[in-house]
């Protein structure tokens, strides 16, 4: 009778205690649930042997205090451990983010800074000329033209080629003595005429003003005055060249030769146009922030992924 009563009470106590153990944090339970059950069973058995039901009641009485105290402690420790893990993890992420962001931003912005301040400054001067065919009803083909005075891309293109021809540019080189002045800057006494013409071609940019007969002659140079001088001399030379052509050529073709008028002479630029410092710096700043953000977020994601893959899975035993 006493034996079966003991068995029932101990089994019941064990069942209740097992339920109560579920209140402990998961990690603690995984490690100590079984030995705690075992210990409690031993305690119940010995308490019964010593003082029967009264002994068991005393075990339960002491157990409540122990349970409440240890539950609070273990949950607090678990919270502390999680917080510390979170802090460590977020610290690692912050570090990765900051290092990557800083490095990428420094490279991009530093690059843009160099691009803005290292290259030699260049000035531009622009002159505008109007190039039109003279009014005539006849062309060399003998039919009435409808494009006189109107925008004709093929005609404009052919004028571009003339302006950039060696004959025109050669005269400009001679008039401004560019072979000598450019030769001096390159460490030689003087450049050959062909070299000077080649160099001049690199400094000249022609643009049509759409749907008009205007052509923009833009010249780039390190010296703003030189740029305006070359632009003005080039337009003048081209006008002269054009007039000579008209005078010396006879026949119907003469009538269709274009007349050149200088609309806007070039003036020396006040500010360099190359490199465009504000734009380059803005691009470096904006692009640097964007790229650095992208790389830093990607880096943090990769670190997170690596941590997740290398983290051992929690044991279920």
């Amino acid at each position: 009778m006493a034996k079966s009563c003991q068995a029932k009470l101990v089994v019941l106590s064990h069942k209740v205690y097992k339920r109560l153990l579920a209140l402990y944090p998961m990690q603690y339970r995984q490690e100590y649930e079984t030995p705690m059950e075992q210990l409690f069973r031993d305690q119940c058995r010995d308490a019964w042997n010593e003082a029967r039901a009264w002994g068991l009641a005393l075990v339960w009485l002491r157990l409540w205090l122990d349970l409440i105290k240890s539950l609070i402690l273990e949950h607090l420790r678990n919270l502390k451990r999680r917080k510390s893990m979170f802090n460590k993890t977020s610290l690692a992420f912050r570090k990765t983010f900051l290092v990557l962001f800083g490095a990428v931003f420094a490279v991009v912005f530093g690059g843009s800074f160099l691009m803005a301040y290292l290259p030699t400054e260049q000035y531009a001067s622009t002159a505008r000329i109007k190039v039109e065919r003279t009014a005539t009803d006849l062309t060399s083909e003998g039919y009435q033209t409808s494009s006189v005075g109107n925008y004709d891309p093929y005609f404009i293109q052919s004028q571009f080629e003339l302006i950039q021809s060696d004959r025109v540019l050669g005269r400009v080189v001679k008039k401004l003595n560019l072979a000598e002045s450019w030769g001096g800057t390159s460490g030689r006494a003087a450049l050959g005429e062909a070299d000077a013409i080649k160099l001049l071609k690199q400094h000249v940019e022609l643009r049509p003003v759409r749907t008009t007969s205007l052509i923009e002659v833009r010249v780039y140079s390190k010296n703003p005055r030189e740029a305006s001088n070359i632009a003005n001399k080039l337009t003048e030379t081209y006008r002269e060249f054009n007039s000579e052509q008209r005078r010396t050529t006879a026949g119907v073709e003469t009538l269709t030769k274009p007349a050149v008028e200088i609309v806007d002479p070039a003036v020396a630029g006040l500010r360099p146009i190359r490199p465009n410092k504000p734009f380059t710096l803005f691009l470096g700043l904006f692009g640097g922030v964007l790229l650095a953000l992208l790389v830093a977020v990607l880096g943090v994601f990769l670190v997170h992924l690596k941590q997740r893959l290398s983290r051992p899975r929690a044991s279920t035993t």
């Binding site: 030995p35 705690m36 105290k69 240890s70």
Partner: peptide
């Protein structure tokens, strides 16, 4: 000093 299972295993841990 009487330790319950919770206190004992908490200490051991």
């Amino acid at each position: 000093i009487k330790m319950g299972p919770g206190t004992l295993y908490g200490t051991i841990k």
